[in-house]
Design a protein around this nucleic acid. Structure first.
Lengths: 127, 127
DNA sequence: ATCAATGCAAAGTCTTTGCAATAGG
DNA sequence: CCTATTGCAAAGACTTTGCATTGAT
């Protein structure tokens, strides 16, 4: 049975990290958190696990402006992100601007879009 | 006169590249194009020139999903980008989805937004 | 003559790949 | 057993930095 996935401590730890943390995580953040459960886990293991989970649709990539790619559990539906310039954290935003893809000039085939709002989150607005 | 900028062949070539090309360019794209005018130009020269131009406000950074940062001439007004998954190039898109910033939940102070459309450019749609 | 700017090469960060050893099913 | 997965270490891609030399003013 080719293409079969094996259940390993490392993969379990990585999956656990995503379930525990709500927000999108970078590869190295995942590595750091997963090492709490599986000390000595290799860097490549995380990248390979992320690639595999991405491939099978368990994760999706989130690109926040200028930051390393982040990953979050898939199946959350279409949403976007708010990136706080105060604390650097990312928040999910529900909803989506309709008709945004019509902005492309003729001749372009639009397949998707990403939107990132920037500013201050409630915690950083206050002080 | 500290902080003074000197006019060099390299800086001129780099500035020329941005004037000739419309879209946002990555550091290495700039290097490649600038080497047509100044053969043997060093990698570091481009990065230092970009940093200097950014500092003085001549350039702005554009972050497209998961790619290396790109730079374009400042003062173009509000616009967004289209990123082709075929050739990897970036294109400018005029216009902006109105009301997009209203998507943020109450309590968030929205200061800006970035929108990236993805798909295939006219050249890559054809084949 | 000064000193900003350059080119080279080394170092740094993040990510990918090669390979023998390990371990899941 | 069989082979996907792992850890290590080397290799890659992109960017930054150190330093002696070059060149603009």
């Amino acid at each position: 049975m080719p293409g079969h996935q094996r259940h390993t401590r490392q993969r379990a730890a990585i999956a656990g990290v995503f379930e525990a943390q709500g927000g999108p995580l970078s590869a190295l953040e995942v590595l750091k958190l997963a090492r709490a459960k599986v000390p000595g886990m290799g860097t490549a293991t995380v990248y390979r696990a992320l690639a595999a989970m991405l491939e099978e649709g368990a994760l999706t990539v989130v690109h926040l402006l200028g930051q390393a790619p982040r990953y979050e559990l898939a199946g959350k539906g279409h949403h976007h992100h708010f990136c706080c310039r105060g604390c650097g954290r990312a928040f999910e935003i529900e909803g989506c601007a309709e008709g945004v893809q019509a902005l492309a000039p003729a001749g372009f085939r639009v397949e998707g879009h990403d939107l990132v709002l920037t500013g201050l989150c409630p915690g950083c607005v206050g002080g």
